[in-house]
Nucleic acid binder design. Structure first.
Lengths: 243, 243
DNA sequence: TACTTAGTGTGAAGGGTATTCACATAACAA
DNA sequence: TTGTTATGTGAATACCCTTCACACTAAGTA
């Protein structure tokens, strides 16, 4: 749809078809048994292929997993963006976006694990920059939603301007780090308070989902959904006071 | 020191010695290469034992890992409690406790991964109730530190009582869940606002550490330490307004 | 003391897994 | 048609976890 490019030959087409089939089967294994359940033997068995053949398409098991991480992250970002479609009310919009993240995680728990807890080999992280586009996309969506809430709030009531509750963060080092990150991510237009809240919104919500998926919150008997909702509310309130 | 118990026979002593040696070697593998790097073959190789012999001490590799999780969680809780020794200033005390968690995680990143992202087999979580003591110990420490800050703050200035910033959470379902959890954990003496803040403090900080260890924060260029410090400050401020 | 039992260790075997390599075959390009 | 490239295979290597029948040894018992 975007690039025309030279017409793909039959071979190229067949190749990308095979690659896709491999990734689909692998992702199916992830969904069913988590990242560790991905086995090249299982894949080739399903495809009636010899194990060695798979190495014509992926350099190693880890390379395949790295590709899966990128795909899953893209899917996650798509889902967050999809949840951000309705822009009627700013507050509701922010809530929708944040809930979108959790909805995807609950629908695809093992994919979520794949993305966020796969130090792929067993220590070094592969695919560092390849996930940046998807990460950037979802973060941008969150930051924009927060900024919208902040704008709406400061428009309706421009009263207690110098309130003491405006997310005090006087650390200059963090400030410059936020600035640099914002410029790299086309977010330079937003104030530091909004950027920080966007980042912490993400770390906070991920914290809940991570513990929930690890079974650590269920062990306490606390419903992770309620906790999540409480944090979403808290973020929204903080967004109203941001800027 | 606690239980005298019947004097352990030579065999029992030798057995527990062997168990300890196995766990030590396994934990060493975790530290060096993460949970996935634990291999029974490697352990018995180091011990000059036959692979089969190991099954006299652990039913399976997963059983060994489950034990390691419990031990690591205990060590983590010990470390948090240790950080909570100095109780001079309530605010500083809370900061110390929260920083204690991060310090341990940074000193033992793979042990942290072992505890919080090992869905041991590849989906079902083993060791659910065996980690509860350690989890309870660390959570209690955090809640107590928050309560101390809240008490100190409400003592010095009992002014703006009905402030609108007292962590609004009118959800009755969450309220009763918190209540039940508090009673199960000998925390019933603390108000719901303190309990909730204790829980969210933990999920928030874990969120940062989890993303940091996964390499997702480094990818943004943001120093996780600064973000952590900012969240710690935010929690402390919220603690002052709690109750 | 001699006998019985329970704990501990071994070798071999079975069944997984990822990965590499030399070789064959199919598809394409000249 | 001929040469080149992509694709696929079988066999081999090297790990890994786990089980089982068997031996041995330390402990407790008659």
């Amino acid at each position: 749809m975007n690039e025309q490019g030279p017409r793909p030959t039959r071979r190229q087409e067949r190749r990308s078809q095979t690659v896709q089939e491999i990734k689909t089967l692998a992702m199916q294994q992830v969904s069913e048994g988590g990242p560790d359940a991905v086995t090249l033997s299982g894949i080739v068995r399903e495809m009636a292929m010899s194990p060695a053949a798979l190495y014509r398409y992926f350099a190693s098991r880890d390379a395949l997993l790295a590709d899966l991480v990128v795909d899953a992250y893209d899917d996650f970002a798509d889902s967050v963006l999809e949840a951000a479609r309705d822009r009627s009310d700013a507050g509701q919009h922010l809530t929708d976006v944040l809930n979108g993240a959790r909805d995807w995680a609950l629908a695809n728990p093992n994919a979520y694990r794949l993305i966020f807890q796969t130090s792929i080999g067993s220590g070094q992280e592969l695919a560092p920059e390849r996930t940046i586009p998807a990460a950037s996309r979802s973060m941008t969506t969150i930051v924009e939603a927060i900024a919208a809430v902040a704008d709406a709030a400061s428009a309706t009531k421009a009263e207690s301007k110098s309130d003491s509750n405006t997310v005090a963060q006087p650390d200059p080092t963090l400030d410059t780090a936020l600035q640099a990150w914002a410029e790299r991510s086309q977010l330079a237009q937003y104030p530091r308070s909004v950027l920080l809240l966007g980042l912490t919104a993400w770390t906070r919500l991920h914290g809940i989902m991570s513990l929930e998926l690890g079974g650590h919150l269920p062990a306490t008997g606390i419903d992770a959904g309620l906790l999540y909702a409480a944090e979403v509310d808290s973020i929204r309130e903080q967004a109203e006071r941001a800027r």
